[in-house]
Amino acid sequence: MDPISFVYLAAILFAIGSAAVLTRRNAIVAFMGVELMLNAANLALVSFSRIHGEVDGQVMAFFVMVVAAAEVVVGLAIIIAVFRTRQSISLDEPAELRG
């Protein structure tokens, strides 16, 4: 299979991820959308690495995974803090800061 197809797949995944962020009220799901976007980028990196015939892109993907993991930690911590206070993880509910 032509590696460029994986790039298209990555783009589609990126789009799906961002759609999740925009459409899902659940903070966790939205956050998963973000992770999906990051992984779409990873997929793109790896595919391009393959296209260019070198490993740099794959190495980059590892970096990204580590960073994404750290991000998950912080993200979940924040979401949990919000949940403990509000008993809800709806993204629409905390909207006191506006205007």
């Binding site: 459409t23 993204l91 909207a95 506006r98 205007g99």
Partner: peptide
């Protein structure tokens, strides 16, 4: 314009996109 700042994070994300 201020009304566009709805406080809804999903709206913000949509603006960005």
């Amino acid at each position: 314009t201020r009304k566009m700042q709805t406080g809804q994070v999903r709206g913000y994300a949509a603006t960005m996109l």
